[in-house]
Write a protein that binds this DNA or RNA. Structure first.
Lengths: 232, 232
DNA sequence: ATACCCGCTTGATAAATATCAAGTGATGAC
DNA sequence: GTCATCACTTGATATTTATCAAGCGGGTAT
C-alpha cells in the first residue's frame, strides 16, 4: 500500500476498501488533533460537522437530561464515533469528552457524504459499520430492559474475562463510577453489587477482579451472544 | 413510473431511488404473505434469511431472556424491519410476531446484499435508513437510562399528542400491556402511572386519553427532540 | 512527613418498581 | 340472558435502586 495520511485510520475496516484516490480526497480536509484528559469535544444538540476517529486514548459518549447524566458508551481506539449523525447531516445525540489524553482525526462531514457517493467500497463499509453499531445498541437496550443491575454487572465481568481470553483475573478498564454509569446504576449501587457477587465467587480489590468460580458466575449471569457478544 | 411489483414497497424511501431494473431484480425472489394476528414470524437467534417489509397490519419486535420478555419496538406500515441483520448476514436479535392481521413482503437477504452492490441509489438509501434506525435506538437508550417510568409515560403521551397535530385528546394506539412492555414497566405499574399523571391533568378512560393541561404535563415531562423526536 | 483531595465504600433511609393475589368490567360464545 | 374470558385495575407487600450522609484510604502537593 502506498503512503497515506493517518495510516491508523486507513487500516480501519471503514476506510480499508476505498481507492487511494478517494481516501486522499477524504483526508484532504481532515486534521489530527491531540486533546488533554477530561476535555469536552462535542455537546449533544450541536451540528455534526465532523466525523471523529479516535486514534489513541479514550472517549466517553454521554448524555444529559434534567440534571441527570449517563454514559451511553465508551469509545476505544481505533474507531470512529458519531457516524450516524454525520451521514444524516443531523445533530449529535450524545456529548463527547476525552477520558485520557487522546489523538483524534476529524474529517469534515460533507466530505464523508461526498466520497460516500463516489466510492462504492466506502459505501459498503459504511453500511456494514452502521449495521454493527445498530445491533450493538439493540443489545444495550435488551441488557437494560431484561436484566437487573446485578445481572448486568455479572455479565459485564464475564465479557471482560472473554476479552482476556477467558482469564480468571483481570483489571477493570474503567473507573468504577464510569462503569456504574455505563451499566445504568449509581456508584453506591455498583459497590454493593460487587459485594453481592462475592456469593458467586467474585473478588474485587481496587481495579483487580478475580473470578473464583466461573461456573457459578455463569449460572447466575446467563450470558447470551444475543446480548453480550459485541462481535456478532 | 412504470408498473412495479408491490407498489407500496417501491414508494418507500428505501426503494424509491433505485433503478426500475434493479428493483425488478430485487423483487424477483420476493413474495407477499398474509398472516393472521398473533403469529410468530421470527425467533431471535435465527439466521436473517429475509428482509421483511410490513405493508399492512402491525408487528411486535420483542426479546426474551431468562423467563422475561420485553417489547423492543413496534413496527407500523409501511416500513422494513431487521435491515441490519440482513446487511450483516447475521442472526436476528429480536423475535417478531404479528399484532393484527398483517401483509408482509419478504425479500431474500442475499438479493438485498447483491443489489446493494449494484445500485448506488439503493446503497445510499440503505445507509440513510440504517443511520435513522441507529439514532432511534440511541434515543431509546437515553429514555431508559435518564428517565423514570412515569417520565417515560408522560413523554410518550406528549409524542402521541404530537402525532395527532398536538390534539389534546386521542386514542392509544397500543394495548396497555403492550405499551407497558415498550416503556419498560409492568402493566400494574403502568396503571398506577396513569393515575399519577392525573396530578398533571391527564385523564385516561379505556383507550381514550385527554390532556387537560398541556403546560403542566410538559413542565413535568420535559420533552426534548434529542430523545422524543423520532424524525431528526 | 503532613494534610488534603478524591474516589470509593458503608450505613440508614427513601423512592421506584415488581410481584402476588384478588377484584372489576367489558366482550363474546353459547 | 348467562357464563366465561381476558385485559385491566387495585391493594398489600417485597425487591430493587437511589439518595443522603459519613467514613475510609490511597495518592499527591507542599
Amino acid at each position: 500500500m502506498p503512503d497515506s495520511t493517518f495510516p491508523e485510520v486507513r487500516s480501519l475496516d471503514l476506510f480499508a476498501d476505498m481507492s487511494d484516490e478517494n481516501y486522499a480526497k477524504l483526508m484532504r480536509g481532515a486534521y489530527l488533533q491531540t486533546f488533554p484528559p477530561h476535555v469536552d469535544l462535542i455537546g449533544e444538540g450541536e451540528d455534526a460537522d465532523f466525523l471523529h476517529v479516535l486514534v489513541s486514548g479514550a472517549v466517553d459518549l454521554f448524555s444529559s437530561w434534567s440534571n441527570r447524566e449517563t454514559s451511553v458508551m465508551i469509545v476505544k481506539p481505533v474507531s470512529t464515533f458519531i457516524l450516524a449523525a454525520t451521514i444524516r447531516d443531523a445533530r449529535y445525540l450524545m456529548s463527547a469528552r476525552t477520558m485520557e489524553k487522546s489523538r483524534i482525526v476529524m474529517i469534515p462531514s460533507q466530505d464523508v457524504r461526498a466520497i460516500f457517493d463516489l466510492d462504492a467500497g466506502f459505501a459498503r463499509a459504511v453500511v456494514v459499520e452502521l449495521a454493527a453499531c445498530y445491533r450493538s445498541v439493540i443489545k444495550t437496550t435488551k441488557n437494560l430492559k431484561l436484566r437487573t443491575a446485578l445481572e448486568r454487572l455479572a455479565n459485564y465481568l464475564l465479557s471482560r474475562s472473554q476479552d482476556h481470553d477467558g482469564a480468571l483475573n483481570f483489571v477493570l478498564d474503567l473507573e468504577k463510577r464510569q462503569l456504574a454509569s455505563v451499566l445504568g446504576m449509581t456508584p453506591e449501587n455498583l459497590s454493593r453489587a460487587f459485594k453481592a457477587l462475592q456469593a458467586y465467587g467474585v473478588q474485587v480489590n481496587g481495579e483487580n477482579v478475580v473470578i473464583n468460580n466461573m461456573d457459578d458466575l455463569q449460572t447466575f449471569a446467563k450470558p447470551t451472544s444475543l446480548i453480550d457478544d459485541n462481535r456478532t
